[in-house]
Design a protein around this nucleic acid. Sequence first.
DNA 1: CTTAGGG
DNA 2: CCCTAAG
Length: 440
Amino acid sequence: MLECKVDESFVPSLDEAVEVQHLLAEHKPDHASVDSDAWKHLDIEDFSYGFEYGLKRNCGGLDCNNAQGQEELEFGVLDGLLDEVDEVDDIHAANDISGACKDFLLDVELAEKISDLDCAPHGRLHLGNTSSESQSPGFSGSSNGTHGLSESSTATILGSECKNSSVENKTVKCELNDSSGDKWDYHARENVFTTSHDLENLDELDDAKPLESGISSDDNEKKPVQTSKMSTLLRQKRLRKPTKSSYNELHHGGALTLIKEESLSETITQETLDDDEKLSDLKSKCISGRQKISSPALKHKCLKIGSRNELHHLRGFKSVPREESFTGISTQASFESRPRRGRPKKRPVPESDDEHNASESEDDRAKRRKSKKSADRRKHQRMWTLSEVMKLIDGIAQYGTGRWTDIKKLLFSSYAYRTPVDLRDKWRNLLRASSVQKQK
DNA sequence: CTTAGGG
DNA sequence: CCCTAAG
């Protein structure tokens, strides 16, 4: 089971990993300055912190899913997973694994050394096959041979990973967490290595973004355009209120105060992540991932995203508790109140796979209500997902602030529940939040 | 009907 | 998100 899992998630994740990088780079332009800062600010502490909680985070995700009662999930399975995860958690706690990992992570140099050593000599690119092969024995092997095996497998992973992104690691990490705890020592090892490497990759990513040293080539083109547009939009918005003029007038009227793009980006980040959207998003993704084990692609996508999001959460994006927040569910509560240390900046992962369409509209609430623990007191409010917000931003960038229907039609055609007014409201909220944040 | 803006 | 006013 374990082998399969890792294997599955591993092979396809390569492509997607690149994808993510692209996306990240692609969207960075709007707020390059902030982002770069944000990313740079993500010091080791944050990561280690994140890692430490990452183990639990997965549990949380599972639990949340379960709690959410998201549709016809096999509760039995989930429960089983939960139990397993719990076990792992306990084990970790008992053996102070997390602490050890943390220390390990804190040692950047060490991590670098490891990566260097692993990358250089092996330098192989056999992703799926090699990694899976080398890993299989590790998992199935005796606990005694754990050390050697884990090293070799790790080396392979890292080797391939050198040319790719860190997402793979995360994927693996997730999988590992999913696995039962009987071989936790091995997993721990794996986690340590991959995670430490994660740091590097993330750092690389971070560095690459501001520099535009692009993994994505199209990001260069997009940057100027979007940036300017953003300024314009922001300007418009800013002006609109006082003047009450049409957006056209404002558009041509000239610029006045303009909200820093950075603040906007922050707002977006926070807003979107703040909203339980992030939770629901994450959950749904994780859920789908676990459900559809038959579809590897989806699986890793979800896992990948999940882990990504986890990082965000861990970095403390959650700032202001929202009225719409999930509450009442113990797991979620803890989820929410989780470590929210650190800068509230950072770029959300541009995700395009928000498959939740009209189908989710009504059964959405129904599902939640079905939840065992409690029904979250969400009304008839539809959460804005990160991708939605991003779409919105893009749409506004393209059509301006006055053409909500156009944006609706062209970018939200699949989202029946989003009316032009909704879009406008969301935008308004974003701006509001952005300005508020600015004042702070 | 669409948008702007207040609730 | 809802409602209303205004174009």
